[in-house]
Write a protein that binds this DNA or RNA. Sequence first.
DNA 1: GAGCCTTGCAGAAACGTACCTGTCAACGCC
DNA 2: GGCGTTGACAGGTACGTTTCTGCAAGGCTC
Lengths: 362, 362
Amino acid sequence: MSRTETHRRSTRSGRAGIRDVAAAAGVSITTVSDALNGKGRLPDATRSHVREVAERLGYRPSAAARTLRTGKSGLIGLTVTTYGDEPFTFTEFPYFAEMARAATSAALARGYALVILPATSRHDVWSNVALDGTVVIDPSDQDAVVTELVRQGLPVVSDGRPAGTLPVTAWVDNDHEAAVLGLLDHLADAGARRIGLLTGNTTDTYTRLSTDAYLCWCERVGQDPVYESYPAHDPCAGAVAADRLLARPDRPDAVYGLFDPNGTDLLAAARRYGLRVPEDLLLVCCSESTVYAATEPPVTTLSLKPRRIGTAVVQLLIDAIEGVNPDGPVEQVIPTELIVRTSSQRRPPRTKVSPPRSPSGD
Amino acid sequence: MSRTETHRRSTRSGRAGIRDVAAAAGVSITTVSDALNGKGRLPDATRSHVREVAERLGYRPSAAARTLRTGKSGLIGLTVTTYGDEPFTFTEFPYFAEMARAATSAALARGYALVILPATSRHDVWSNVALDGTVVIDPSDQDAVVTELVRQGLPVVSDGRPAGTLPVTAWVDNDHEAAVLGLLDHLADAGARRIGLLTGNTTDTYTRLSTDAYLCWCERVGQDPVYESYPAHDPCAGAVAADRLLARPDRPDAVYGLFDPNGTDLLAAARRYGLRVPEDLLLVCCSESTVYAATEPPVTTLSLKPRRIGTAVVQLLIDAIEGVNPDGPVEQVIPTELIVRTSSQRRPPRTKVSPPRSPSGD
DNA sequence: GAGCCTTGCAGAAACGTACCTGTCAACGCC
DNA sequence: GGCGTTGACAGGTACGTTTCTGCAAGGCTC
């Protein structure tokens, strides 16, 4: 052993390698690998002996070497498309945060970890990490990141149905159209005569589908659409737009806010105009935040169930990575939940003269 | 080339490797590596030729192989200590979310990516990913994760000063004592006679330091401490505790809420008891949420500046990874910011008979 | 006892990169 | 013309695993 030093000692790199364990246990490298990974045909005595020696040496297998050899890293990319300057907005809305949390938990349960990556397609950052697959939240129309990843043969699962011909492996989404229609019906049932919409001017699928559903509903019931949109990346613009909406001559008597902070903004705007909620103004907001349970009054919210979505996305992705035939379809629709609170309920209906959906001029 | 097939063609693994680029460009592997990494002594002609061929083949270097060879993965772990069952709570409070976002951005700017990992010390998940270092949010007293990582020789930087003898490489924190004292003074200046505290019963350093500062302040001004604590992992417990606090016989005329959702809970509780804010009850809450700007009334908040903390933590960690001598100290204190809103201001002070800090029995 | 299967393990070839150590030509210089 | 120098590249090894293949010994059947 003192000859050509063909067996490197652990003194070299500091950390003990599989060779050191093999030498210390008096077995071959193969045996160590098999013993620790539960493979091969080894008697329990050898297996436990090797494990004990490995434990004693504090052996930790090199993730890089394993990844290189097996081609699997156990890492999943997580990306959310952004619109502003900041590379990451995944904390902007509780929706993203909750979804990311659920995804992380689900991945962990199956032995994977999540890597947060920017939505830009800069090779230098994306190719610097060995990914087994990627979760993309709200991919844009011709998402460069998705295209690149798919070209590399990596599975990509998106939160939000892909627009156009985006070649994702699978996707999960809500039925936004049904959610909006149901919610508008709910407001109409509560006595709303003219329902307004507050929305960001982003071009993502969620916004488009929801807005379309609103317009469609308006046409069906014969109401003129009354909505305000604002640049979603500007944190102050929402409050301004809420003000604008309530200042209109054709002021709505009910409003649906498409984005998370719209609820508090609308509440504040209503106070400024002396409008009582829900007596003068019915309110519903799409949000995952719990603050709406404690506002004055509590605000009805539409939950998109980000936890279920995050979990589903990761399950589909890992199934694709591991080649498991998904038992369900690769397109999964998660139901939404309308959490009805005071802001959308009128105890004594103000008017019962006509069914709420009938067009009645003013 | 048809002999022993010693040059594997790219048809093998699907993706083009550095060998394929070398063959296509008619140069050696070394030359390709040098050309792409900007090393070696190569004429610009060769360099650009190699780059062009690599681009044409869609060559992406294998992150796993590079990591194995260089020992650097460009990955940074991110962990937040949790108390409940869920493995991840990083989205629970806007603080964590904002901090994580800032950390991710800062890491990206220096060519690193963040991996979200659980605070459990299960080897199988931690050793499955090659990390260059780790950010730990709120490490516990004898944090097993930190100990293990340091034992492996990895740099660890914590958000929150380490308790006991925890061997972190560096840490970043606020001066919680100064923040609480300043805020209590602010409330006293606004006319508070008896300031209460609402807090979770967690054992982390933030809670302990803040509570200690509160008790210390009480002693200094001669006020009996009046506080309620509740299990922080229970999402409903906060509202109950807020109710309890305002139902006490020695009801405070000002309250500081240590955790993020306390503000809305206290506001709701005050409404239930018919207390006007700020006339009957002054309110301050430690929070990063923007909803407090639009509540009725707007609530004064203490911001811990999570963005600055997240950025600082990552800078310190990457400095340690790259062996840069940090120009600043390895212990960095970030100032807090008190965002004063209506809830802690009394326009016409109700009483001016005695200086606010004087002990006055009842 | 020859063939065959099973058990228990060892050898060695990859995985794809980075980098150290040459080699070879050209060049200037005395 | 010998010699150091420099530019421009090629060869080969190592990073630490996993896993395919091989091989010897023992037990079984006929």
